[in-house]
């Protein structure tokens, strides 16, 4: 199996189905180290399903996921590929940070404890090291003063930044964002987008499902346009956003830009 040197993430022939309804059709996608890829497209295009198949929150029913050249999510048992168990998936997931549309912070824990929890129980860090790291990450997203607050006492934008801090504390190689600003007022969305922009500037590899066209154009290195479960068009952000070649992309972009 050839190993590409710069590709951090490689998706080959990924298919995702719910029951009998296929939502992702044979998608290939490669993401280089340090690259920021924006997945755009109409709702129902399969963007989120594709993103979630990367860390197996949605198990692809066909295809391969390779992280840093290693095939993940399957075990080679006497030459036959069988689905990985929970422990092996966890091994993969700790390298992949995920930020959800609905934040999904743990409501019974303070902001600081939210960031500490998986460091201690997932990575096996000592409590004091995890606490120190959690402080740093909360400071990084500008929320040191919210450390002892429960999520419910924070604004949506703050909650999403805590969620970003929680994911970053695990030292991920790759960050996945699933419509991170869709549940937020535009004003609060900005602070989340600024946090993500800084993360991109720091060289984090990111795959972002988004409806924020400005963000896609300004921050992403590459824009991937999906429709009906397939990649229709992809290329450098400015090119896809300003001179889309495919008719379907043109239709989508003119619709969202004229809103």
């Amino acid at each position: 199996m050839p190993v590409t040197t710069t590709a951090l993430l490689e998706l080959r022939d990924i298919c995702v189905s719910y029951k009998h309804h296929q939502v992702v059709h044979n998608v290939d996608l490669t993401v280089d180290r340090g690259e920021v890829v924006a997945l755009i497209g109409p709702s129902g295009a399969g963007k989120s399903s594709l993103l979630r198949s990367i860390n197996f929150l949605e198990e692809p029913n066909q295809g391969q996921v390779l992280l840093a050249g290693q095939r993940v999510g399957v075990l080679d048992r006497r030459g036959r590929a069988v689905p990985a168990n929970r422990r092996q998936l966890a091994e993969h997931r700790r390298h992949v940070g995920m930020v959800f549309q609905s934040f999904n912070l743990f409501p019974h824990l303070s902001a600081l404890e939210n960031v500490i929890l998986a460091q201690v129980h997932g990575l096996g860090r000592s409590r004091s090291a995890a606490r120190e790291r959690a402080r740093q990450e909360l400071e990084h997203v500008g929320l040191s003063d919210k450390s002892n607050m429960r999520p419910a006492s924070c604004s949506g934008g703050q909650q999403q930044r805590i969620a970003i801090a929680r994911a970053l504390a695990m030292d991920p190689m790759l960050m996945l964002f699933d419509e991170p600003t869709s549940a937020l007022d535009p004003e609060l969305g900005i602070e989340v987008l600024n946090t993500m922009r800084r993360l991109a500037d720091e060289g984090m590899t990111m795959v972002v499902v988004t409806h924020e066209m400005h963000f896609a154009e300004e921050v992403a290195d590459r824009v991937v346009f999906m429709a009906d479960g397939r990649i229709v068009e992809q290329g450098p952000a400015s090119e896809v956003m300003n001179n889309p070649r495919h008719e379907r992309t043109q239709r989508f972009l003119s619709a969202v830009k004229n809103r």
Partner: peptide, 26 residues
């Protein structure tokens, strides 16, 4: 909420830890 399970899974929490620290308190 399903998002709680997903977040715990995405954060690579082992099953027992997920129950003890995330699911059962709620």
């Amino acid at each position: 909420a399903s998002g709680q399970w997903e977040a715990a899974n995405a954060l690579a929490l082992p099953s027992r830890k997920m129950y003890v620290h995330v699911i059962l308190p709620q």
